[in-house]
């Protein structure tokens, strides 16, 4: 169900907990699905003893994918025109992530109504792990 133009206004905010207590296995599951098998994400021995990190950490794209679920839950299926993020801090096993979208503008683009969203995902300590933006088509 697409978001309707009449039902959205600047400042509206939508928020979803997209993962609770992130498991290493989910990171491995994402590696398998995406094809990014970097051992920094899947191999604790390599990540700690060779690369010098405290433990494995999630692919940035896993966080972008988890956050994408919040965006499509809000704007509806197939409505996205643009979605972009900047990776700001690492996501570790055990993290709980809350993703939010805030309406920045409702406008016309190419003859159709669209909404611009500011995207932010934070961990359990309130640290922003990604920030970004999205533009989606609105239903009449």
């Amino acid at each position: 169900m697409a978001l309707e133009a009449g039902a959205v206004k600047v400042g509206d905010r939508y928020e979803v907990v997209v993962v609770e207590d992130l498991k290493r296995t989910q990171i491995v599951q994402y590696a398998g699905a995406s094809g990014d098998y970097n051992p920094l994400h899947t191999d604790e021995i390599f990540a700690t003893e060779v690369a010098g990190y405290p433990k494995v950490f999630a692919h940035g794209m896993l966080t972008m994918g988890l956050t994408g679920r919040m965006v499509t839950d809000y704007v509806g299926d197939g409505a996205l025109k643009k979605y972009g993020v900047r990776f700001k801090a690492q996501v570790w096993p055990g993290d709980t992530l809350t993703a939010s979208a805030t309406v920045e503008a409702v406008r016309e683009e190419d003859g159709e109504a669209v909404v611009d969203l500011a995207i932010s995902t934070v961990n359990q300590d309130g640290v922003e792990v990604i920030s970004g933006s999205a533009t989606a088509r609105l239903a009449d």
């Binding site: 699905a33 094809g35 994918g65 994408g68 197939g78």
Partner: peptide
């Protein structure tokens, strides 16, 4: 059926030279 918004990242599976796949 549609693909999720970040699905194109999984094109790495089909990149013959992708360096992050054994």
């Amino acid at each position: 059926v549609l693909a999720p918004p970040t699905f194109c990242q999984a094109s790495a599976q089909f990149d013959p030279d992708y360096f992050l796949r054994p």
